[in-house]
């Protein structure tokens, strides 16, 4: 909860997502999970009223084609049927065997069915690479601009010299 960017919204209710990999670190993860293996995902209900509503959870590999079914399907790696959580917290113990993109779906059944989806990556260390790539682009852009300006400058300096002759 420290730097709170990990909020999920289902219908008008908010939940809070935390991932833990206690076997490798004591850190809390928001969305992306750094390594494959045993993982605990916790969903805390921010809104009190969610505690009276049955909630189901489905974690599945994101195979690109699926449109977001919350039922237990072949690509699911974990499915928890609708259930009430009076403590306001859902603890999910899951083993990610393969790295890749996953999709989590939380459905609530308050008369109608509302689904929230949260895609996340497992075992990709993706954000660091993305950061480096951005840095590279920025640095090369800066160097390019500088070289270009230098060249333009050199031309400009030569022009009056030429006209004086």
């Amino acid at each position: 909860m420290e730097a709170d960017q990990c909020k999920l919204k289902v219908d008008s209710y908010f939940m809070h997502f935390t991932g833990y990999q206690p076997q490798s670190s004591r850190a809390e993860f928001c969305e992306d999970i750094p390594e494959v293996g045993r993982t605990i995902i916790v969903l805390d209900f921010v809104d009190q009223s969610l505690r009276d509503i049955p909630v189901s959870v489905n974690l599945a590999r994101d195979d690109g084609a699926r449109t977001g079914d919350t039922m237990n399907t072949p690509s699911s790696i974990l499915y928890i049927p609708p259930k009430k959580y009076p403590n306001g917290t859902i603890k999910i113990d899951v083993n990610f065997e393969q790295a890749g993109r996953y999709i989590g779906m939380v459905a609530i059944e308050n008369g109608e069915r509302n689904v929230a989806k949260f895609p996340f990556d497992v075992g990709r260390g993706w954000s660091l690479i993305r950061l480096l790539a951005w840095c590279l682009v920025l640095v090369s852009a800066a160097i390019g601009t500088f070289l270009w300006a230098l060249r333009r400058n050199a031309i400009a300096q030569n022009l009056p010299a030429a006209s004086e002759k």
Binding site: M1, E2, H16, T18, R26, V42, D44, F45, V46, N87, G88, T89
Partner: peptide, 16 residues
């Protein structure tokens, strides 16, 4: 004593 309120009220940052 079990409840999400520990986390939501930010009362358990024992790790930090």
């Amino acid at each position: 004593a079990t409840d999400a309120v520990w986390e939501l009220e930010r009362l358990v940052s024992f790790l930090t």
